[in-house]
Amino acid sequence: MASRRVLLGARVTMVLVTLVAVLSFTTGVVKIGTTGVDESVAAYVPEDLERAAGFTGALTGFLMLGSVLGLRRGLRVAWYSTVLLLPVTAVQGLAQSSVASTPLIALSLLSIPFVLLNYRRFDRQIDLSTTQLAATAALLGTMVYGTAGTYRLSEDFNNVETILDAVYYTIVTASTVGYGDAIPTTQQARLFSISVLILGVASFTLALGSLLGPAIEARFAQALGTMTERQLELLEDHVIVLGYGDLTEPIIDELDGTVPFVVITPDQEAAAELNARDIAVLSADPSDEAPLQRASIEDARAVVAATNNDANDALAILTAKSLNADIRVVAGATDRENVEKLRRAGADTVISPAVIGGHLLVESALGDENVETVADQLLDSSGGSAAGE
């Protein structure tokens, strides 16, 4: 069941969508400015669509990459945009008819059911700040103002005759590119162009600032180990390690490279060190519900409680079980007398390093040199002597 969930999971979906985006961009670049459609579909593809398939395919590839970034954050709007863009890339693949067109069409169609099956995995709403909303409104308002005004004053411009010409002039003016092929010829048109230029520069600057500012803040937060949202996105079939201490490091070494995992610890210095090692970590109290929910406990494989404090372990176990009653919980007991307490808190397996060490010492003292075999037997047991029973 777990392997099937991984096979149909969000990660596979994102890989497929990323491949579609790359192929769409590649075929689009190859077909820019060229014509020639496969004879089997030539009769159904208009010449204008055939010519536009190149640069529109590359543009769709960029849009698809944007959707992939949104999917990585679990955004529902990215899920909707992906569902809309996949049929478009398939149709463009038909129109482009290049070497990469067949795999583009096949991957586009193959990705659709994967995206649909993982609908619930992409349920996060876009949380835009007031500044970001204002920047978006200003940018859109400038584009509408510039396009409508340029088209209305088209007689006062050279080479502006259609709405598309007006959009083109507004973009090249507001972005300060100014190719010079569309020129105002009257004082009124020049004054209007100045207003478009000023509003365009201001709105573009505001938009960039509202986007880059949070990204820079996220970098600082990531360096401090206080925010690792990007690492936690789309976790599934993983292990959640509660706490960080002497017991945790061997656990991390065992999990690293074999099973996806995330560490939750209130120690910010430890979180920063783990983050520097590219280990997914949340700087939070492991007994709180919020960090466990951010770590996708409902989709986790198991929970390991190893805070070096049995009381904190018991509270963290109770919280984990309340959020996912079926999840397997393994706890490390610092004191052997707390083994039963951790079991009553909900731990499925409790390992006491002190008890294990005692067993190994006794076996070694009695002449058994194969202590590693004894340790394996103790660790494989779900309770018994290893747990102090």
Rank of each mutant, 00 (worst) to 15 (best):
8 L>H: 08
9 G>L: 01
12 V>C: 02
13 T>D: 01
14 M>H: 03
14 M>D: 10
19 L>S: 13
21 A>K: 02
21 A>F: 00
23 L>V: 10
24 S>R: 02
25 F>A: 14
26 T>R: 11
40 S>Y: 11
40 S>N: 13
46 P>Y: 08
46 P>W: 04
47 E>H: 12
49 L>K: 05
49 L>N: 07
49 L>M: 12
59 L>N: 07
62 F>Y: 09
63 L>H: 02
64 M>P: 05
69 L>V: 01
69 L>I: 04
70 G>A: 01
72 R>A: 03
77 V>D: 02
81 S>F: 00
82 T>Q: 00
88 V>A: 08
88 V>Y: 04
94 L>I: 12
95 A>K: 05
95 A>C: 07
96 Q>P: 06
105 I>M: 02
112 I>W: 14
113 P>H: 05
120 R>E: 10
122 F>V: 01
123 D>F: 02
124 R>E: 07
126 I>D: 06
127 D>H: 13
127 D>S: 11
127 D>I: 12
127 D>F: 09
130 T>K: 14
131 T>I: 14
132 Q>K: 14
137 A>E: 01
139 L>S: 15
141 G>Q: 01
154 S>N: 10
155 E>S: 12
158 N>I: 02
158 N>W: 12
163 I>P: 12
170 T>F: 07
171 I>R: 03
173 T>S: 06
177 V>H: 13
178 G>S: 12
178 G>T: 15
189 A>C: 09
190 R>P: 04
196 V>S: 07
199 L>I: 03
202 A>Q: 10
203 S>I: 13
204 F>K: 13
204 F>Y: 15
206 L>R: 00
209 G>A: 06
210 S>I: 14
212 L>T: 14
212 L>F: 15
217 E>C: 06
219 R>E: 09
221 A>W: 08
222 Q>I: 11
230 R>H: 10
231 Q>K: 15
244 Y>T: 11
258 T>M: 05
258 T>P: 01
262 V>R: 04
264 I>F: 00
265 T>A: 09
268 Q>C: 04
272 A>H: 10
281 V>P: 12
283 S>D: 06
287 S>V: 12
290 A>R: 09
291 P>L: 08
293 Q>C: 11
296 S>W: 09
298 E>L: 05
299 D>P: 08
303 V>Q: 05
311 A>Q: 13
313 D>V: 06
318 L>N: 03
321 K>Y: 03
322 S>C: 01
325 A>E: 08
328 R>V: 13
328 R>H: 13
331 A>W: 00
332 G>E: 13
333 A>K: 10
333 A>I: 08
335 D>G: 00
335 D>T: 07
336 R>Y: 04
341 K>P: 01
343 R>L: 02
346 G>C: 11
346 G>N: 00
355 V>E: 00
363 E>H: 14
366 L>R: 13
370 N>P: 05
378 L>F: 03
379 L>Q: 14
382 S>K: 14
382 S>Q: 12
386 A>D: 08
388 G>M: 04
